[in-house]
């Protein structure tokens, strides 16, 4: 697939890709954080980081309690966030404005690394969910000693 693109592209195309790469590097240097919004209708939006030991998944879920939320790890690399946001309507009142959404949601994420399902830690703080997943031993980076000859 990649090779075919290469074949199709003439010298002009190469310049374009180079320009695009240059622009990307420029944005990276200027602190552009590579924000790519989730597609419409996808809820919740997530941010994900990794370090050598673990993966951290974060989602904004205001108004949810831990009891409204189910978190599963399936196999070695699937994370499911499932829950319901319930409306809070005061008694004997008229609705003037409703912008906040309610209902059920499920989001299944395929993780970029195998994780150890027994080492998952989730917490909810001020409406932000943080799930820390320990990478599986096989997915952790290994330092290769270089021997002097």
């Amino acid at each position: 697939m990649f090779a075919r693109w290469q074949n199709l592209s003439g010298p002009g195309w190469n310049t374009l890709t180079q320009l695009q790469d240059e622009m990307n590097r420029l944005f990276d240097r200027c602190g552009f954080n590579g924000h790519r919004p989730a597609a419409r209708g996808v809820f919740p939006a997530i941010n994900m980081w990794e370090d050598g030991e673990s993966l951290l998944v974060e989602a904004e879920l205001p108004g949810l309690d831990m009891k409204d939320l189910e978190i599963y790890v399936t196999g070695t690399d699937q994370l499911t966030l499932k829950g319901e946001r319930k409306p809070n309507v005061p008694a004997d009142s008229v609705k003037h404005r409703q912008e906040r959404g309610f209902g059920n949601f499920v989001r299944v994420l395929t993780l970029p690394y195998a994780v150890d399902a027994s080492k998952v830690d989730a917490r909810l703080e001020h409406g932000v969910l943080q799930v820390r997943l320990a990478k599986h031993e096989s997915a952790k980076p290994r330092k290769i000693p270089v021997k002097a000859v």
């Binding site: 904004e60 205001p62 008694a91 009142s93 003037h96 959404g101 001020h126 409406g127």
Partner: peptide
């Protein structure tokens, strides 16, 4: 922030989503 506003005889009640904001 996204908000809901309700009105009863005695008061207006406003709910606002502020994820990640400490009280």
């Amino acid at each position: 922030p996204q908000v809901d506003i309700y009105e009863s005889d005695k008061e207006l009640v406003l709910f606002a989503d502020l994820p990640g904001v400490a009280p």
